[in-house]
Computed example of a mutant assay.
Amino acid sequence: MNRLKVLVADDDPNVREILRIFFQSHQYDLIEAQNGAEAVELVEREAPDVVILDVMMPVMDGFTACREILKKRDIPIIMLSAKGEEFDRVLGLELGADDYVTKPFSPRELMSRIKAIFRRIQRKPVPEEENGTVYDFGELSIHLERREVLVNGEKSVFRPKEFDLLAHLAKSPGTVYSREQLLEQVWGYDFYGDIRTVDVHIKKLREKLAILKHPYIQTIWGVGYKFEAVTGDAEND
């Protein structure tokens, strides 16, 4: 099995040194960047498996770097910051980050979160016997085997976890899921991130389905979310 390649972007050399020593001792290859611009360049040149971005960096901050990296590659990103405010966590998730770790942290915690991300990536989003299934709702079609979503007959781009969430909701129309249930069933038992990641992904799904006539993703206030396939008098959120 190939060694996991981790890119760490942090302007604090002490943080980079601590992580370098720890990760190399656990058979990880570490690539270092001093700012966000350098991180974006290294992602293209070195093709890391996961990126750790400090939020506050010179030249280019972590949020901007996250946005630029995801324009070019679909790669797991963990935001790293001394800030623990809700706004920063939600912003990082909205930009596409997979997790958010607040300083101070332990290298072991960070490694555990990386392992959790890759366990989720490797886990099949649907049972194997369902491969080849198409959920067809007319203007919206979800092809499980090809992992494609057709919106009004046109292929639409969904990130892996967005697709997993949409497919999970669509396979049981009318079923109401709490955020905790979605974290457990879509992200997995070992998910470390903020529960608000569900809300962020729901928001992204709605944006990508906004051109459709029917509001498929509906909020059940105080409970969670459901996929409503009825094309009649379903209520808007």
Rank of each mutant, 00 (worst) to 15 (best):
A33R: 05
N35Q: 02
D29F: 06
M57S: 08
I31L: 13
R20H: 12
P76W: 12
E154M: 13
D98M: 08
F118H: 08
I195M: 12
L93D: 08
L165S: 05
S141Q: 15
E44H: 11
K203M: 06
G132M: 05
Y135P: 05
M60H: 10
L53Q: 09
V40I: 07
G174A: 10
P107F: 03
F137M: 13
V43P: 03
S156H: 12
L80W: 10
D190I: 01
Q122D: 15
E162W: 07
D61N: 14
N2A: 14
G193T: 06
E180K: 15
E184H: 13
Y135V: 04
R146F: 08
A167W: 12
R206S: 12
T133K: 06
I114E: 02
G174R: 03
I69M: 08
P125T: 07
D10H: 00
E148P: 05
F87L: 13
V40R: 05
V134E: 01
E94M: 13
S112L: 14
I220N: 13
E139I: 08
K213C: 06
Y189D: 12
L7R: 10
Q185N: 15
P125Q: 10
H168P: 02
L30S: 05
S172Y: 14
L95E: 02
L42D: 02
E129T: 10
G232E: 14
K155D: 02
M60P: 00
T175G: 01
